[in-house]
Design a protein around this nucleic acid. Structure first.
Length: 310
DNA sequence: TAGACGTGGAT
DNA sequence: TATCCAAGTCT
């Protein structure tokens, strides 16, 4: 990440030529106007709470799977205080099979904090958002930008990939977000607040729909003509193929099995019900301990277990 | 700063 | 069938 696009701050002509960055903004935002998906959390009636709920659910999770859960969630808990008034276990249950159920717990915790500290309204301040459980750098910027129209660098995996290709000329961004990427994202942020918020949503959508991880469709890309990666002949990613970790047989799978038993039960379940969910006793016990430590499972007297009541 | 943390559809 | 991938956060 070193090749910033040329962005002359002063035009050499009498007539002001648009800067390279401005052309980028106009192209991507224009494309967004034509091709943006109509998603429920983008509608005005979603409000900041709707945006926030969607951001929690969309962490590492495809839109198609979030859609139905999102609708049910907002219908049941239309405001943060509604969720805060319910047991955390109900949030875990309603989370269903979205995955990473700790997100449900954190969303419940965030609703509690919003109710107690912010009068029931999702805070607009980036720092206050960041202080809520389950909200990191990305989500804080996303909520501030999408819900409140503020000017923030919203750097998710989609935007990172778009920048890696269009600006840096490589197929994929680094494994972990670097300082250089953050600098670039800030440098490319439109000055105007309204435009910046539009740019954030538009650049993300471009990565999600066109500049995808695999089978990218440059023919539909509004900035293909100036994409460094495409211009370089789309060289393949250099270096070791990161990632791996098969899922079958991991503690994660066991945790998922155990939690599924509890989600599907009405009240508490006996130890024997959990024992039936996984054959290997040592790993099963370790997974259960982890769930209890995480607050996802509540142990009761007599060897019974349930989703957390408080 | 790696690694843990779910799940299911696509290739 | 195996691997990759999907709007990250936390420790």
């Amino acid at each position: 990440m070193n090749t910033l696009p040329t962005m002359p701050t002063v035009s050499t002509n009498e007539t002001t030529e648009p800067t390279e960055a401005a052309v980028l903004h106009e192209s991507v935002i224009g494309w967004f106007g034509e091709h943006a998906r109509d998603l429920p959390w983008r509608r005005p009636e979603a409000g900041a709470w709707g945006v926030m709920v969607s951001e929690f659910m969309l962490q590492q999770t495809p839109v198609s799977r979030v859609l139905p859960v999102y609708e049910q969630w907002l219908a049941r808990w239309p405001r943060p205080a509604d969720l805060a008034a319910d047991a955390p276990g109900e949030a875990v249950r309603a989370w269903g099979r979205l995955g990473y159920p700790r997100r449900a717990l954190r969303l419940h915790g965030a609703a509690l904090a919003i109710t107690e500290r912010h009068g029931g309204d999702v805070p607009a301040d980036h720092g206050q958002l960041l202080a809520l459980p389950g909200i990191g750098e990305y989500t804080a910027a996303a909520v501030a930008s999408f819900a409140y129209g503020q000017r923030h660098a919203v750097l998710d995996t989609n935007v990172r990939r778009v920048f890696a290709r269009a600006v840096s000329g490589v197929q994929y961004p680094p494994t972990a977000t670097t300082a250089a990427e953050r600098r670039l994202a800030r440098a490319l942020l439109p000055e105007d607040e309204v435009t910046a918020a539009r740019w954030a949503a538009a650049s993300m959508e471009l990565g999600a729909l066109v500049c995808t991880a695999k089978n990218e469709t440059c023919g539909r890309c509004p900035i293909a003509a100036r994409c460094a990666w495409r211009l370089a002949g789309k060289p393949a990613h250099q270096g070791p193929a990161r990632r791996g970790q098969t899922y079958a047989g991991t503690d994660r799978q066991v945790r998922g099995r155990l939690l599924a038993v509890l989600r599907d039960a009405t009240g508490s379940v006996p130890q024997s019900a959990l024992d039936a969910a996984w054959h290997e006793p040592v790993q099963r016990a370790r997974a259960l301990d982890g769930l209890v430590a995480d607050g996802l499972v509540e142990p009761l007297d007599g060897g019974r277990y349930r989703l957390p009541q408080s």
